[in-house]
Design a protein around this nucleic acid. Structure first.
Length: 268
DNA sequence: CCGGATGTTCACCT
DNA sequence: GAGGTGAACATCCG
């Protein structure tokens, strides 16, 4: 479930740790380290490093290490990228920043800690049941598309231009638009009255402007509500649900390879 | 027991 | 390159 909203909450959870030194790193699951085949030893170079700052690009959270030996001369020599996949979450000293808002049910095993970094008495873990997340030293962000939370009409227009696949598939494609997941995309399209199956290259400028506005507004509003699952259409992801706009039965299809709920009456 | 579903990323087809 | 499919992963459900 971590989409950009949740990852941003995780990023802020590191604020109290800025300036602290890494005292230990544990990577029990070698398969969790990207690229594949990277030995866990390379992560040990993080030990002794100082957390300088954090950043986020779509669903990719990056910790920047290193200091400023001289004022104004920053040498950020190391960074660590964190990807949370579908079931990954961040735990700090055993509790999650947003646990009350997600994963309310289900089991929770310490054995699912795939990566742990210790800052003195503070332990930060990535707990990931299904192991679809990963960590990567010095991850590149070149392959990522426009940041969804601030996307402009011209950025969205460039992402859609010339593409024949469904609009939903484009919005989910992290190399075109970074940060949206299945829930944010369905909510945005439902709010904007756009069918998820509609071809990406079939939108005029006015529709692109409206969609960019809707995506930004949806991200902002659901952020303040507390998560990707707080959308108005979230409760409509059920077999018997009817769209409150028009009383129409919600459709359930696979679009862009993903489970998709939408209202055929007002989404075109 | 089997198949399907879940969300994300990536490998591998056409 | 663009687009589509399925694997990977763990667990639950019918």
């Amino acid at each position: 479930m971590p989409e950009l909203i949740e990852v941003e909450m995780y990023r802020r959870a590191f604020d109290p740790l800025i300036g602290r030194l890494v005292s230990a790193v544990e990577a029990p699951d070698v398969a969790y380290i990207r690229p594949n085949g990277t030995p866990r030893e390379v992560l040990h170079q993080l030990v002794g490093e100082r957390l300088h700052s954090t950043s986020r690009h779509g669903k990719l959270l990056i910790l920047h290490f290193g200091g400023a030996p001289k004022p104004g001369v920053e040498t950020l020599d190391l960074s660590l990228g964190m990807r949370f996949g579908m079931t990954g979450r961040l735990l700090i000293n055993g509790s999650g920043p947003i646990d009350k808002l997600e994963y309310a049910s289900g089991r929770d095993e310490p054995a699912w800690d795939r990566f742990t970094m210790t800052f003195g008495r503070s332990r930060v873990s990535m707990r990931d049941q299904r192991r679809l997340g990963s960590v990567e030293l010095d991850p590149g962000v070149e392959g990522l598309g426009a940041e969804a939370s601030t996307i402009t009409a011209s950025e969205l227009s460039a992402a859609l231009r010339g593409r024949t696949k469904a609009i939903k598939a484009v919005l989910l494609d992290q190399s075109l638009v970074a940060g949206l997941g299945n829930l944010l995309v369905d909510e945005s399209l439902w709010r904007c009255g756009i069918a998820p199956t509609r071809r990406a290259n079939s939108f005029d400028d006015a529709a692109i402007l409206a969609l960019a506005d809707t995506v930004r507004a949806t991200v902002a509003e659901l952020s303040s509500r507390g998560g990707s699952h707080t959308g108005d259409s979230f409760v409509l992801r059920a077999a018997e649900a009817r769209c409150p706009h028009d009383g129409e039965r919600m459709r359930h299809d696979t679009v862009g390879g993903r489970s998709t709920w939408w209202c055929q009456a007002h989404q075109h």
